[in-house]
Design a binder for these strands. Structure first.
Length: 466
RNA sequence: UCCCCUGUAGCUCAGCUGGUUAGAGCGGUGGACUGUUAAUCCAUGUGUCGUCUGUUCAAAUCAGACCAGGGGAGCCA
């Protein structure tokens, strides 16, 4: 039989006075001496639970219905009716309440019908999705992911499945996790006494990817408009509310495009996905507005309706130097901006997302295109109020001689990048792209303060439970 | 990795200038009441006081180490 979603029932997609069945988990049970019990049942399909009325003449009323507690699983069959009570439009007059699974110890069931701290929920990641906040985050995350794919698909971008296991130890974006099948208790050694990775699964050292960018550039230089959207891994010892060891990243790559094209695509994408979110998940967003961040909906609407400010790094330095504020870290041309600087620019000076671009070459990666001034590269960061850097991107260096020179300056061995260099040897073209940290996007869109609470099973230093 | 804060009942916390049987709210359980909305009212509290070591006649309370969580910083997405 097909299972009916509670979201469809509450949306009025089923005729009243007809029999239906719903499946789900009990949120609360309230008993009335009028001879009925009220069951609030949720199935995750929407924010709201549906109310079922269980009369005390059900066969299993005493033995089972009265034992239902938060978290128990049920199938309820009955007549869909318009609710005479306040707070819901429809409810089910149950003729049958089938108990699929009770909670064996309600006293210690972690997700009791009460407020919990966000940290407590995080430590019960397997039960967290049953809560209002866990369900809402999950639905918003899904809505945003689908909107990202839809937006890029409609724009003609092709989704490229770049590898998670990489043989290049030089992706240049942080510490990497090693992938190996060697016996760590008994490592094979070469004559020189080093670990012999020729004995390893791939016959060489391999790692989990820190970015799909270098790989997706190869497909960009063949299919023109491409993107990756998948997990990435960084073995950095980062303990912040903005970093994960395993996180998801959206990385579009556009051929025949400059930095401004990439910034435009990023801006259009953010506007598109936030608009889709507000339309698709009004119920969840109302919850976040009420309980998590009073400004979240206004903030998203501001992003949708305002043009992003674009600002050169050089101008940003001037603004920071002349703003009259004293920063812990002094500002001068050539320094990398700190959180406090980025926050001032996005939150106070602009009051919205800002595209910072054309950074000094010395603080950016080798593959970013050198500008004509010889001092800066065509790189951009999009800074969002409250969360900081949400997007990082650049125009890629397409000139082989300049690329080689930059690699030389940064002590990188061109031999390690032979296939990447080939793209510049065989029909090279200007191209640009960016990376969007998906968890940061979800955090920004919900008002959640910590990316660990917007990914189902967060991976952070010392934490890989579940 | 660095700085700061925290770790007491299923959960959120109080207690901590060391001193008899460690408390409250919520949850749960029992009852009352009610077409109820995490309802209301009454009753119900034996928990390695994060772990280990030390100081002391005496440690939840003081000290040290360690572990865990949070906030900030750095790295970045």
């Amino acid at each position: 039989m097909s299972v009916i979603a509670i979201s469809d029932v509450l949306a009025g997609k089923f005729p009243v006075d007809k029999e239906i069945s719903v499946h789900g988990w009990i949120r609360t049970r309230r008993d009335s001496k009028a001879g009925i019990s009220f069951l609030a049942i949720h199935d995750g399909s929407c924010f709201d639970a549906i109310q079922a009325i269980a009369p005390n003449n059900l066969d299993n009323y005493q033995d089972e219905v009265l034992k239902l507690t938060a978290g128990a699983a049920v199938k309820v069959t009955g007549t869909l009716v318009e609710s005479p009570g306040q707070g819901q439009s429809f409810e089910i007059q149950a003729t049958q309440v089938e108990v699929l699974g009770l909670v064996d110890d309600p006293d210690t069931y972690p997700m009791a019908a009460k407020r919990h701290s966000i940290e407590f929920l995080r430590e019960h990641a397997h039960l967290r999705p049953r809560t209002n906040i866990g369900g809402a985050v999950t639905r918003v995350r899904n809505s945003l992911a689908q909107a990202v794919h839809r937006f890029l698909h409609e724009k003609g971008y092709m989704w490229i499945s770049t590898p998670l296991i990489t043989g290049s130890d030089c992706e240049g974006a942080g510490e990497m996790f090693r992938v190996s099948t060697l016996d760590m208790e008994n490592l094979p050694k070469t004559d020189k006494g080093d670990i012999d990775y020729a004995e390893d699964f791939f016959g060489k050292e391999t790692f989990l990817t820190v970015s799909g960018q270098l790989n997706v550039e190869t497909y960009c230089c063949a299919l023109s408009k491409v993107y990756t959207f998948g997990p990435t891994f960084r073995a950095e010892n980062s303990n912040t509310s903005r970093h994960l060891a395993e996180f998801w990243m959206v990385e579009p790559e556009i051929a025949f495009a400059d930095l401004a094209d990439a910034a435009t695509l990023a801006e259009e994408m953010l506007k598109y996905v936030f608009k889709a979110l507000l339309e698709e998940r009004a119920d969840d967003m109302a919850f976040f507005q009420q309980r998590v961040d009073k400004t979240v909906i206004d903030r998203l609407n501001a992003v949708i309706n305002k043009d992003f400010v674009r600002m050169d790094y050089t101008d940003a330095i001037e603004i920071l130097q002349n703003c009259g504020k004293t920063f812990e870290n002094p500002v001068s041309w050539g320094v990398d901006l700190n959180s406090e600087h980025e926050r001032y620019l996005a939150e106070e000076h602009v009051g919205g997302p800002v595209v910072l671009q054309n950074y000094p070459k010395d603080i950016k990666s080798f593959y970013m295109r050198l500008n004509d001034d010889g001092k800066t590269v065509a790189a951009m960061d999009i800074l969002a109020p409250g969360i900081g850097e949400i997007i990082g991107g650049s125009q890629r260096e397409e000139r082989l001689d300049v690329l080689d020179k930059r690699m030389g300056e940064m002590d990188l061995d061109p031999a390690d990048y032979s296939w990447y260099r080939d793209l510049r040897r065989y029909g090279t073209v200007p191209h640009s792209g960016f990376g969007l940290g998906f968890e940061r996007l979800v955090a920004y869109a919900t008002g959640m303060q910590n990316v660990r609470d917007v990914i189902p099973f967060p991976r952070t230093p010392n934490n890989a439970a579940y």
